[in-house]
Design a protein around this nucleic acid. Sequence first.
DNA 1: TATTTGTGTAACGGTATGGTTACGCATTAT
DNA 2: ATAATGCGTAACCATACCGTTACACAAATA
Lengths: 118, 118
Amino acid sequence: MRHPKVTYSTEAAFQALADPTRRAVLDLLRQGSQPAGQIARAFPISRPAISKHLRLLRRAHLVQERREGRHRMYQLNPEPLKAVDSWLEHYRVFWKANLNNLKAFVESEYAKETGKSE
Amino acid sequence: MRHPKVTYSTEAAFQALADPTRRAVLDLLRQGSQPAGQIARAFPISRPAISKHLRLLRRAHLVQERREGRHRMYQLNPEPLKAVDSWLEHYRVFWKANLNNLKAFVESEYAKETGKSE
DNA sequence: TATTTGTGTAACGGTATGGTTACGCATTAT
DNA sequence: ATAATGCGTAACCATACCGTTACACAAATA
């Protein structure tokens, strides 16, 4: 198949996103691919520490690595985030519900103030 | 203020979502508030284990607890998920980009097959 | 009052995280 | 050939996580 449908583990994605440094790495890669060293230089922690974060991100398929000379270019792969997004989808309705509740509350308060029964 | 704008730690939310059991607890609470014991009975692990997951969820403000007789009712609070959602927002554009690339690819393949130059 | 029920916490153990320094190994530059 | 650069991995450490069993304690029930 030319366009195989790949499903990534939601588990690995959520787990990878748990660490703020890893999220920051992803945020960085939104601006474009970068070699590992350059990524590391953007953070106050050691290069091996970043290397390990990159390994986790690779494991979660959130980044793709390709060798380019003596560099390892890292590229963002947003695909697994879709799973996260669709998990969240179920909750969006609640935000709307809360907004509706707030609206109802405000309106009932208003009704009180103006003395209207309903 | 009657409706203070509360900002929760994105950090705690992402961290809480890292565990599949905790996500499942949230999924369960979408159906309505439940006492701790009933939540625990829905899982194959011990009650204290669930109790600790609930503590983490509380810490992340993803659930609210209120005492009701000898029960502790847990209610979903989707609020902190907004932060997760807005982090994700930055990545949605990439999915669309990928879809566009796919579309462009398919169209160019089609063009080849039909011999059309564009 | 004595007991059962519902729930959190303490203490403990195994494993994963997240960081560090030391090292190994390609690849490029001298 | 030798040195420098870029990067992953190994070994190690401290701390957090996730589970367990034992316990404490308030609220409902007998």
